[in-house]
Nucleic acid binder design. Structure first.
Lengths: 300, 300
DNA sequence: CTGACTTATACTCAATATGAGCATAAGCGG
DNA sequence: CCGCTTATGCTCATATTGAGTATAAGTCAG
């Protein structure tokens, strides 16, 4: 009846360096840190921590579960039984000169619509999707799938770009055969680095979760240094979400939510007027544990 | 190295009957439908569907993953290996005269602050928590834990009740030794039915997820009949969230989001003026797949 | 048939939140 | 000094939200 199971733990470990969100990888950027659950692991989280630290030498902070997979793809041979993957999102602060870190947007250039490179990538995608839809037999199907392309990739500015749909966009590209993981020809592939197995898909899940979460929980501060200026905070939010923020409104919102307090320090190297330094209010966070970090996001 | 694993699938199957949210149970309300993942199951979701239908005879609709557990409690004997539980939230429509359905609030009476019974229960809890905190040695700990009680249970109306913190509240009561699952004496137990293992905790997870999700995704309609009046929709939202809604504002929000359309039909048995019947707009939902169902919730 | 009571539906109004921009401050390098 | 940068304070129109009033259209008791 019950077959033997192999449980794999996979981590999307994220940090921000020089305003660029990064993910920890192994195998030259082709795999996320991962390994089987062992009997010595006291819990799933402990197992994730153990594997990440063993493979990358990097200790991790905040950890939360993402998703558990057991797809057809993950079926091993009949003798070995089934494979189940439990994925986690982990956040951490600095990382001076460690290897294994890669930019998020090396894997998902189209998610970085703030930059010209991202917009160029979206132009390519739009063309390829158009071709994909045009090649369908069924007219109703064509309409339906084009509608999907339009909403997911905000084609033709009838729909606004939704930064949280990272996974849905990746899955559409996969279905359309435009990513290397789908086994397509290199010339019809969208820009962006591929990964082994379904690790890029898991990375997409983690990015989506983080983009969603920074909007209603003060998790950004897990990625910030102890002291920071408001512009630094804003740049981190922008790079994570891939969307511009109106500076004055951002400050207003952060201040009125009382998530940060002045340290009294001053950052001089701003390139302009010196900026006040702030720190995250851990105490207030304890008291009103469940407030959000609303951010005024603006379209590019 | 790797030990043998037993994967258990657990479902929080929810429906609404007569404006009361209900959960499907087995073993006289002491367990959620559950069973081991078998090699015949094509996927995890398929396994959940199979177990629920086998144990309850009820086919299920919308399914989404909740959480994967592998706590210490779930460690089997050294020979058998470890046990992992993957829990799912499932939604379904009607259920005429089936057995196994139990009210949510039989297990979590304090979550139903709309009713007098719920408010009475909260009074009892407040007293018991007060006693629990008072019995602590460490003064700093006393302050910290009382702060936690105040925010989670909205004691003393400095903090507003947050209906999404179902799990956090249950965990606080567990820590305080006020629920039967914590192995406490029956006389110092908070009202509410217990369950075997950690199934009540999993139910709390499902309730919290659903309460959170109805705010930003049109999932309520999975629980509604084909046609309904706006008051019926409102009552379902209220009973799920356990919070009152301002009637006129609710209508305004639902209408302006264009989530529903008139069927042309009229419901006569309202006890007052007859009401128009509506249906969920599936087509619009397809087009703008990712809009939310904002609801204007009001404190009691 | 009338009046009390129910629910349905339309509309108003004030308080707040949000998006966008202006203005001034305070550093830099020439 | 000027022109550049970023920081920070403030205004203003608009949108969203919370709360209430007003009216419509049924039921039921007498």
């Amino acid at each position: 009846m019950t077959t033997q199971m192999l449980i794999e733990l996979i981590a999307v470990l994220t940090a921000v360096r020089d305003d660029v969100p990064q993910v920890m990888t192994i195998d030259h950027g082709r795999l996320l840190p991962s390994g089987p659950l062992e009997s010595t692991h006291r819990s799933l989280q402990a197992g994730v921590r153990a594997w990440v630290e063993r493979q990358t030498g990097h200790p991790i902070g905040h950890v939360e579960q993402l998703y558990t997979f057991a797809d057809h793809d993950r079926l091993l041979g009949a003798e070995q039984g089934r494979m189940i993957a439990i994925s986690y999102l982990a956040l951490t602060r600095s990382h001076a000169g460690e290897t294994g870190w890669r930019d998020w947007y090396d894997y998902f250039p189209w998610e970085n619509c703030k930059t010209d490179a991202g917009r160029d990538c979206l132009t390519i995608i739009e063309r390829l999707l158009c071709k994909w839809v045009a090649g369908m037999d069924n007219a109703a199907m064509r309409v339906r799938q084009w509608q999907r392309c339009v909403t997911l990739f905000a084609i033709g500015d009838m729909v606004a770009w939704n930064d949280e749909l990272v996974l849905q966009r990746y899955e559409l590209l996969y279905e359309a055969g435009l990513v290397a993981e789908a086994g397509c020809a290199p010339e019809s592939t969208v820009p962006g680095r591929a990964m082994h197995h379904d690790h890029r898909r898991i990375l997409a899940t983690g990015m989506a979760r983080l983009r969603a979460k920074i909007r209603y929980r003060p998790v950004v501060f897990e990625l910030m240094p102890e002291e920071f200026t408001l512009l630094q905070l804003q740049r981190v939010m922008e790079s994570l979400s891939g969307v511009h923020i109106h500076k004055q409104n951002f400050r207003r919102l952060i201040m009125q939510q009382q998530l940060v307090e002045e340290t009294g320090g001053i950052e001089e190297n701003t390139g302009g007027r010196p900026a006040r330094l702030y720190r995250f209010c851990g105490e207030v966070r304890q008291a009103r544990q469940f407030v959000g970090t609303k951010i005024p996001l603006v379209q590019p």
